[in-house]
Nucleic acid binder design. Structure first.
Lengths: 179, 179, 179, 179
DNA sequence: TATGAATGAGTGTTCATTCAT
DNA sequence: CATGAATGAACACTCATTCAT
């Protein structure tokens, strides 16, 4: 499927998604995006009113992807416990597929100014969603947050160590925690 | 104590420390640093051969600060368990003092290119040190990593939620985990 | 004809041409070029991806100019011998017009790092072209190179002595060499 | 013989000589010189009041070296003709030893502003000296300048072509010119 | 709707030189 | 005599964004 067979907006979003995740938000310039997406600069600003706006779009796309993968992995499992543990498999999968780039949401959280409300809200929504997901499955708020913190810690640490050990460890712990 | 009463190198490092932590690495330009540190641009490059080099300096300073604070809080405690729990108090303290900016090391990890070895190594060393700290105190590798992942998760999540709940939760869990 | 009546790319090239020839490549900064060409800095980099790229452009423009002048002078002459001798008149003309700045190609050859392939190739192509020109006219390779070396020597020495004597002498010798 | 066993002035001069010839005048910064010469910055300015001043020193040293080599090659020859031809062997030698960097005097002539009288005079003196050398040997002003122009052309062209052909050709021509 | 030329403000870095000690 | 810290100005280059066509 060639680049030109897609709508400009889609091409921009796909390209930015790939670049923001692969090399970071600040390290990715508008020029690189429009060049690789093969769109004109003004076309870009027709579809996204700013780089920040694009960032929101990318994070929403990422959210959707994470959701899909999560549900795909979860669907094969029968018990809530196994569904929870599947979340850690998702991190493993992303680490492998994307060479330990870590959590796109947390990375961008570190890159944007603290007062960037719009982007922060998308990140907040995504993470709250995951947190709630654990709560829904486990029906035990404290345990859910325990798992959630392990999940987040494992994600961020596997990026730092460029190794799956934090995920493996966290999953093992989670397994022992959930009755 | 006025700005000029310090050595230029100290002024640069202090300023960069404050700015990198407060507004991020990429959002802080050399120009802002030298202006607020009141040094000439070439003076800056006499003391630090690049911005990356300064970043290493800042992270080392941060490491030192974290160590000092950690030991100060830890010194008041008698048992290993209480010393471990004191680590969570340190996050609480930093969150309060620095308005939930999160972990400087993880933030910068997200900001730099993945192949920046020098900076990554400082970050790696700092985090490995903390991980080892828990291992030394608890004499139980698995438990130590459990605590470590909670610690990291709590740090990163309190930045996102701009709230102490993740630290409080993590500390409470840690308290129950350690016999 | 005012500056603004031209396209930005043309204004940049004309300005750089004038400055590189008049004051040297390294002594001419991008800032001076864009200021005198009355274009924004980013506009410059839209048309030329680097200073080196601009240098290539300037040398190509110079090549064109030399060719035109050479053919203009040559066209009036009937015999190959007279056409060869006209080449020396070209040096005289340039020396007068441009105050003995010497050969732009050789000057820039001295200014750029030895491993700058792109620029070197333009210089090489220009000089090879001149050398071949003599060979074509004289149909005698050894004689042609003899003339070529005198031509180059005359160009470079008139720059040093800020005087036409080397050109006059070289032309006289050439006259006596060609049957 | 270690670096420190020499006087500072000598170390600076030797280093600058090597660097100016090897990588060019403008591409060589004061910092690189003092670093490789292992002298303090202020020590440098004690011995040379400016970079231009150092340049004069380097060119004088170069002049001396060329003279010595020239006389060494010349001394073995008996006739004036053979002594003249030895000059071309010198270029060959330098091309080999110094990887076709060309004539240091002409290179620097191209690098400095046209109004730099002090440096120009050293260059002028050196070249006048060579020109006079040919006149003295040949006792025939026109022939001497013919050889001189070939000599200069050969020097500059072997730099451009990174090949000995111009020197070989020029020497052969000179051989046939001198009775 | 789509374009690409144009922009001002900024990036990190290096220059040759001076000065207090 | 020797030092190394300090400097202002300049370096080549990139940023996200706008606007006339």
């Amino acid at each position: 499927m060639s680049n030109e067979s897609q709508q400009p907006r889609v091409r921009i979003l796909d390209t930015a998604y790939r670049l923001f995740l692969g090399q970071g938000y600040n390290s990715t310039g508008i020029n690189q995006i429009i060049e690789e997406a093969e769109v004109a600069k003004a076309s870009f600003y027709q579809h996204f009113k700013s780089k920040e706006d694009l960032c929101v779009g990318v994070l929403e796309k990422r959210h959707q992807y994470i959701e899909e993968q999560s549900q795909a992995l979860s669907a094969q499992k029968r018990t809530p416990k196994m569904k929870v543990l599947a979340s850690f498999d998702l991190i493993s999968l992303l680490n492998e597929q994307e060479d330990f780039r870590g959590c796109a949401f947390l990375n961008i959280l570190s890159e944007i100014p603290a007062d960037n409300t719009k982007v922060r809200e998308v990140i907040y929504a995504h993470k709250s969603n995951i947190r709630q997901h654990f709560k829904d499955l486990l029906q035990h708020a404290e345990l859910a947050d325990h798992i959630y913190l392990l999940y987040e810690g494992a994600f961020v640490e596997s990026q730092l160590y460029r190794d799956q050990w934090p995920v493996n460890r966290a999953k093992k712990i989670a397994n022992s925690l959930i009755s």
